[in-house]
Computed example of a mutant assay.
Amino acid sequence: MATGGPSAAGAGAAAAAPKDSWPELVGMSSEEAKKKIKEDKPGVDVQVVPADAFVTMDYNTGRVRVFVDSNDKVARAPRIG
């Protein structure tokens, strides 16, 4: 008799979704954050931006903005867009 049934077979298919944000990077330096993002998403354009800067509102799946405070620490979770 087989154990597990169809639900067990589908369990691996629902693994982690593609990463689109990095909340764990808040408080890190911009260089550490850029390195981690590029490890997770090679080829993405990582832009370091002051937290209070004005930026365009367009959505770009090839871009991640890293907003930093005056001490070059990540101020909020970077995400694709």
Results as ranks from 00 to 15, higher is better:
residue 20 D to E: 09
residue 49 V to F: 00
residue 3 T to M: 15
residue 37 I to K: 01
residue 27 G to T: 06
residue 40 D to M: 03
residue 6 P to Y: 10
residue 74 V to R: 00
residue 18 P to L: 13
residue 52 D to I: 00
residue 64 V to M: 02
residue 81 G to M: 12
residue 15 A to G: 15
residue 27 G to C: 05
residue 58 D to E: 11
residue 59 Y to A: 14
residue 59 Y to K: 07
residue 34 K to I: 01
residue 4 G to Q: 07
residue 16 A to D: 15
residue 66 V to H: 03
residue 16 A to S: 15
residue 70 S to C: 05
residue 73 K to T: 11
residue 10 G to P: 01
residue 51 A to K: 10
residue 16 A to M: 13
residue 64 V to E: 06
residue 57 M to Q: 13
residue 10 G to D: 11
residue 67 F to N: 00
residue 30 S to H: 04
residue 74 V to S: 00
residue 6 P to H: 07
residue 23 P to S: 08
residue 78 P to K: 11
residue 9 A to W: 07
residue 49 V to N: 00
residue 62 G to F: 03
residue 28 M to Y: 14
residue 24 E to F: 09
residue 80 I to E: 05
residue 21 S to T: 12
residue 35 K to C: 02
residue 65 R to D: 06
residue 46 V to Y: 05
residue 15 A to D: 14
residue 14 A to Q: 14
residue 42 P to S: 06
residue 20 D to W: 04
residue 43 G to C: 10
residue 71 N to R: 01
residue 12 G to I: 09
residue 30 S to C: 03
residue 69 D to T: 08
residue 50 P to Y: 09
residue 73 K to A: 02
residue 9 A to N: 08
residue 18 P to D: 12
residue 21 S to N: 15
residue 15 A to K: 10
residue 33 A to N: 07
residue 46 V to P: 01
residue 52 D to Q: 04
residue 30 S to D: 14
residue 67 F to D: 06
residue 8 A to P: 00
residue 78 P to W: 07
residue 44 V to L: 01
residue 58 D to Q: 09
residue 41 K to V: 10
residue 6 P to F: 12
residue 58 D to V: 12
residue 77 A to P: 12
residue 69 D to C: 09
residue 42 P to W: 10
residue 78 P to L: 06
residue 44 V to D: 06
residue 77 A to R: 07
residue 8 A to T: 11
residue 63 R to A: 04
residue 18 P to I: 10
residue 10 G to C: 01
residue 70 S to P: 06
residue 41 K to N: 07
residue 27 G to Y: 08
residue 53 A to P: 01
residue 25 L to R: 05
residue 59 Y to D: 02
residue 39 E to K: 10
residue 77 A to I: 10
residue 52 D to C: 00
residue 6 P to M: 09
residue 19 K to W: 01
residue 13 A to H: 02
residue 21 S to I: 08
residue 28 M to L: 14
residue 54 F to G: 09
residue 67 F to E: 03
residue 4 G to A: 04
residue 32 E to W: 03
residue 34 K to G: 09
residue 48 V to D: 05
residue 56 T to V: 07
residue 1 M to N: 09
residue 35 K to W: 14
residue 31 E to W: 13
residue 74 V to E: 03
residue 69 D to V: 06
